[in-house]
């Protein structure tokens, strides 16, 4: 039999993949740079590694959901991201779907499986 903890790692990763995108999009109404976003998410209880977040930000930008700009006036140059118009539309749809999914899943997971 396959190692349970190995399976768990994989399943957890699959489960988190979509959630992280949603979490990031939801926090990008204000302009943020990567590390400030990590802290912001951590404050609210979602830890995400640098190695996951930074590539994700670039990917979302490539997909047109985020916009970015280098800020060079400060003590050190930083790349700032914010949500784009398209990103906002996507977020609205995903938010509605998420809330619906949570409702369904809650009733499934808490209600047990006895008919």
């Amino acid at each position: 039999m396959a190692d349970i903890s190995e399976q768990l790692t994989k399943l957890r990763l699959e489960l988190r993949r979509g959630i992280v995108v949603l979490a990031v999009l939801s926090q990008m109404n204000t302009t943020r740079y990567g590390y400030s976003l990590i802290q912001r998410l951590a404050e609210q209880g979602l830890t995400i590694e640098e190695g996951t977040l930074y590539p994700l930000l670039r990917r979302l930008e490539e997909q047109g959901l985020l916009e970015s700009e280098w800020e060079v006036a400060e003590s050190r140059p930083r790349k700032y991201y914010r949500i784009s118009e398209a990103g906002r539309e996507v977020l609205d749809v995903l938010r509605a779907e998420w809330l619906e999914t949570v409702k369904v899943m809650n009733s499934m997971l808490q209600g047990g499986n006895h008919d």
Binding site: Y33, G34, Y35, S36, E50, Y54, R58, W70, R76, P77, R78, K79
Partner: peptide, 12 residues
């Protein structure tokens, strides 16, 4: 990416 990585390391 290199520039962003530098700024990330400094932030950390």
């Amino acid at each position: 990416i290199e520039a962003e990585l530098r700024s990330l390391i400094q932030d950390m």
